[in-house]
Design a protein around this nucleic acid. Structure first.
Lengths: 203, 203, 203, 203
DNA sequence: TATGAATGAGGATTCATTCAT
DNA sequence: AATGAATGAATCCTCATTCAT
């Protein structure tokens, strides 16, 4: 979707040399845009007016369209870092936790924290009808494999039900957190997540 | 603008003679409107354009505004019957089931069935930002007490965790089903509901 | 404009005999309508929604259209009595006042009082673009001759400028009062009327 | 969104070079909008449909909202020049006229000419219920002080009644002219203005 | 005759998207 | 490349007027 190349770290200097000055501006703008969008998504939702995001970033609207031709492109870019961080935490948790189920509990709570604290994320994935594929794909590509590994370990240890798939669980957590964005002191999404985790156990 | 009376056939023959015909059209239209809105809500969401609902019902737009001055009025009217039916099923289940937890399982599945099959309902409650209060109130008024009774019985029987509230559970189920509306063969909302129910058990 | 006949007083009993009962209902409605319209015109202006007038009168909207096919018909009917009363006061004032100019002053103030106290009247005449002719004609037919008589007497007595016409003065007073309907403690329409009267004097 | 600067031709050549073209379109549009609105206000009143003004100006509707977010903004902008010109004429008249009353007569006639020839202005001030404050304030801010000075001079010279305020007179003239917009060969608003001026004299 | 339900044109406003500068 | 002005489709809502009952 028109994102910059997923290059290895080493070739950066060359590409910068090839186009040294212009790229700096463009990068600054892209960064400003991502920050602005992240901020606006939280307060106004992923369907916030383009103009507001542009204003927040201090750039013209055309600049948004240049960097992110579709809204989905912007949405995905905004959340990619957070998704990456979440994905990368999985193996470490699995390696250090007392048991696979403990690792799973921790990772799921980490994921839920992402969704709830950086809220907008879960709702974005759920509501982003047009860019659904892109955002959904991001989640699936990055997170399902991570959770699948943890789940496989837990299943091998006999800690969770055998028929539980990573996608099923990931999706369940996502929906729960997506629905929890309206502030409501009487409702605690994290408690629901605990219930779900308890429900996953093999007895 | 309320519901028409669900009267037995035999009563009020005189008043019908006095004012026999006029209301028939209005009733037909209100019914058509409710059906049309229910249908459009499923495909286009509760924020669907008024014009589309009117067209679907085969009436003018003004007719919608006459019968349902605000969108919330229409949304609530559309879902009231279904909510009522669900509420009324609660006591019967509690009376006949083998145990309170069995009754709870059945009622929660009934509720989830409503949400999933008559979909739009759960999303409506979640998305209806403006009419949120009205729709939310409908759910709370009708369903929370029903589930609270069941839950109290289950708790008294030691079948469920002590700190679980009816609102918490109702909301969890609602969010899960609301997120499950996009068709996805790899995801089964009912399985998530089962996980939740399992997680509610006292062990 | 569909008004009832401009008949002499004597034939009323006959017409009532010809259509005794139905007419009673119709008259009641017409009276209610006139009262309601007068009241609504004051608060909401002559362009008030038909529905509001009907509601105020406690009749259906169709009834308004039956009695007063156009808005102008209703507006004229509402103000006819007041205009008549004003017209009828003219000769008496002229006969009893100390001088024609005194009579003119009194009558003009009477007219201004009508316009200001029963406000809506002046604005109605001014704003009623469509029914302009009808309402204007009402004023011209009834009031211009009355003021013309007074003015002629004053002119004959050498009290007012020779080139002043009844229509010119009537219109001036009307516009002044029409513009004065917005409440404004810093502005006194009656003072303006006095200035105008002073300005009419022959010196 | 303010007025463009009425700059002398020679200044800011550098900045124009730096950003030479872009603003030209916007200015052209703003000018076209003001001209179109002035024209449409005359024929259709200040409540004319936005679409009609846009069409008259040859721009999209959104362009009106960009330049003049509220109708009041547009109305005020349309009439500001004329009001300014009128205000600026006051001191000169007072300085050159044979007497303060002569100056007052001339200024009032100038004001009335504005109102009548550029008609719509008076009716705008009168009818613009929402933007009433803005337009009213424009008149009060600019014109009341000007007339107040003239009036004070005339009062000091013993030429006008002592209790006459600038606002009272301005408003009277305004209402007279506002009411005179319908073409009517039998009515001469300027004659009414003369009557008013005559009525202001101290005798 | 009276009612008031239904219609639908009319007008305001927002905002995604394009494109001249 | 960046800007932000312009466009106009989409949607909401009101209310005059008609007409079935």
């Amino acid at each position: 979707m028109g994102e910059e190349r997923r290059v290895g770290a080493g070739d950066e200097p060359l590409s910068r040399t090839a186009n040294p000055t212009k790229r700096a501006d463009a990068r600054r703008n892209e960064k400003a845009l991502l920050d602005a969008a992240a901020s606006v998504f939280v307060t106004d939702g992923v369907d916030a007016p383009v103009r507001r995001i542009a204003a927040e970033a201090g750039v013209g609207m055309g600049t948004i369209y240049r960097h992110f031709p579709t809204r989905a492109d912007l949405v995905v870019a905004v959340y990619r870092h957070q998704v990456d961080a979440c994905a990368e935490a999985g193996p470490a948790l699995l390696a250090t936790a007392a048991s696979p189920f403990v690792a799973m509990t921790r990772w799921v709570n980490l994921f839920a924290d992402f969704l709830v604290t950086k809220h907008g994320l879960a709702a974005a994935m759920r509501d982003d009808h047009d860019g659904f594929t892109a955002l959904h794909a991001l989640f699936l590509d990055r997170l399902v494999p991570v959770l699948a590994d943890i789940l496989a370990a837990a299943r091998d240890a006999g800690e969770v039900k055998a028929d539980l798939t990573a996608y099923q669980l990931l999706r369940a957590i996502g929906d729960v957190c997506a629905g929890a964005e309206r502030v409501d002191p009487a409702y605690d999404a994290r408690l629901t997540v605990q219930l779900l985790l308890d429900g996953c156990r093999q007895r």
